[in-house]
Simulated assay, not measured.
Amino acid sequence: MFQRPAAPDIQTDYLIIGAGVAGITLAQKLKEKGLEVWLLGSPYESQIAKAGALQNVSSIAEGTNGLDHIEEMIAKAKEVGVKHKTSLCTSIETNDEIAVITKHQKFLAKKVVIATGAKQPRLDFEGETNFYHKGISDCAVCDWGLYRGKDIAVIGSHEYTRRAAEFMKQHANKVYLMWLSEHLDFSLDNILTFTNVREIVAMGSDVLENVSFESEQGSQKIQISGLFVEGKPKPSTKFLQDSKIKLNESGYIIVDSKFRTSIQNIWAIGDVTGLTDSYDTAIDHSIQLAKELLI
């Protein structure tokens, strides 16, 4: 049974869950029309915050830092009056009213938009949980400052993995790339690369000190201070597992052509739907939904 949080309930016209590109854009569009809008979530967890220098984005100058850009977006949204909390949504109740539950508070909204995006999943190797935030991170652009001038490794087999390795090369002393698959169709200067990485074990006393693994290049043991897990994101829909909102077999929210979910007055946009493949698409879908909601 739900236990009322200590903080008082908040009632609002619109509640947008997720402070990435899609969520922030929509929140600002709605607020500019005079509606009461709350935005939940941390912009630092968004994919654009992890993207490094942005490339091939029509509306942004080439080379703009993704982290700087998302900070600018959230600042502009607040300037027009969007109310923002970094609280994590833990569940949604859709009985007599829509109630969005966080750890310390409950939000009662007339209309809810889910834009929680997709996040980096755990790899479940030995020691990953023990050293999470003690040398193991899933956000290079968030935690790079902790490893400035140190030896680090980046693990994964996705475009985000390559980007993270290139980003960390600017700040770390030495960068290793631990590529999980056998196929590698690019090369990175001054980065020692291992392919087909498996049987990974993270070790150390209180913090991460070294990682051993098998690879196409043989058995390895590298001395590092940081290990960044950067791979293919998965939709952030765990908080919906006990809700009535329908998901597909991959965990993405099922929506129709107007971004409506299976529950009345709840919509979804962005990476959490599996329909967004770029920054420009996220912006476009946000604008489309804003028009639908304002009809």
Rank of each mutant, 00 (worst) to 15 (best):
M1I: 06
Q3M: 08
R4N: 11
I17H: 04
I17S: 03
G20M: 06
A22V: 01
G23R: 01
L35M: 11
W38F: 15
L40F: 15
G41L: 13
S42R: 15
Y44D: 15
Y44M: 14
S46T: 07
S46W: 12
A49M: 13
G52Y: 12
A53P: 10
A53G: 07
A53M: 09
L54Y: 03
S58F: 15
I60A: 06
A61R: 15
E62W: 12
I70T: 14
E71N: 15
A75H: 10
A77L: 10
K83C: 07
H84F: 12
H84T: 15
T86L: 12
S87Q: 14
C89W: 07
T94C: 03
E97W: 02
I101L: 13
L108Q: 12
A109W: 00
K110M: 10
T116Y: 00
G117F: 04
F131G: 07
Y132M: 14
K134S: 13
I136T: 08
C142N: 08
D143T: 03
D143W: 07
L146S: 10
G149V: 03
D151A: 02
D151K: 13
A153T: 09
A153P: 08
I155P: 14
I155M: 10
T161Y: 04
A165G: 07
M168C: 03
Q170N: 13
V175D: 08
L180K: 13
S181V: 05
D189M: 06
L192K: 13
T193Y: 03
E199S: 10
I200H: 05
A202T: 04
G204V: 09
F213L: 01
E214W: 04
K232G: 08
K232D: 08
T237M: 01
L240D: 06
Q241K: 13
K246W: 00
N248V: 04
S257I: 07
K258Q: 14
F259K: 12
F259P: 02
R260Q: 14
T261I: 08
S262F: 00
I266N: 00
A268C: 06
I269G: 00
I269V: 06
D271F: 02
V272Y: 05
V272N: 05
T273D: 09
S278D: 11
A282G: 08
S286C: 12
L289R: 09
A290E: 08
K291P: 01
I295Y: 02
